[in-house]
């Protein structure tokens, strides 16, 4: 009896796999854009029609002029001087609100600079995060006057 030894090849053809894979790589390389996907979190308080009333005297007011100059509680101040100024006040009352109030013409970057500095309060030796408030113009007009 003659046995048939011409068995078909049972290998999976993988020669084109690298071609397909590199095609996919090229697609992903072209479509990928490395963008800035990091930022500063800015949790908004709930829009309350009856927010808690904060007396101006109880809070610290940081005004930002269009030139980037800072007026903290009526006194001109440098950015790096804010935390040392706040430290004794916040040690007495850690919940003391710190209000950032930029002028409408102030470039946005100066507001972000101050907000970033205040957010680093704990790195500068404060026990608790600073209670930062950035009221919008509508809120200022509705509740401050």
């Amino acid at each position: 009896m003659k046995l048939d030894r011409d068995r078909p090849d049972d290998e999976i053809p993988t020669s084109s796999m690298a071609d397909i894979a590199f095609l996919l790589i090229v697609f992903f390389m072209i479509t990928t854009t490395f963008t800035a996907t990091r930022g500063l979190d800015f949790a908004l308080p709930e829009d309350d029609d009856d927010p808690p009333v904060v007396e101006k005297e109880e809070s610290v007011l940081i005004e930002i002029l269009p030139t980037g100059e800072l007026i903290v509680d009526q006194d001109p101040m440098q950015l790096h001087e804010i935390i040392p100024y706040l430290k004794p006040k916040l040690e007495r009352n850690p919940k003391k609100p710190v209000i950032i109030r930029p002028d409408t013409a102030t470039p946005y970057k100066y507001m972000v600079q101050v907000y970033d500095e205040l957010r680093q309060g704990e790195d500068h030796g404060l026990a608790e995060p600073i209670n930062i408030s950035v009221p919008t113009q509508r809120e200022i007009q509705s509740f401050w006057y």
Partner: peptide, 27 residues
């Protein structure tokens, strides 16, 4: 960064009124 605060303030106020809670300032 050079946009006036007034413009950004309008946007943030709109987000507040829309009851958005989590906002990130891209930097």
């Amino acid at each position: 960064g050079e946009v006036s605060w007034e413009k950004v303030d309008e946007v943030i106020d709109a987000l507040k009124r829309a009851k958005v809670r989590d906002v990130y300032l891209l930097s």
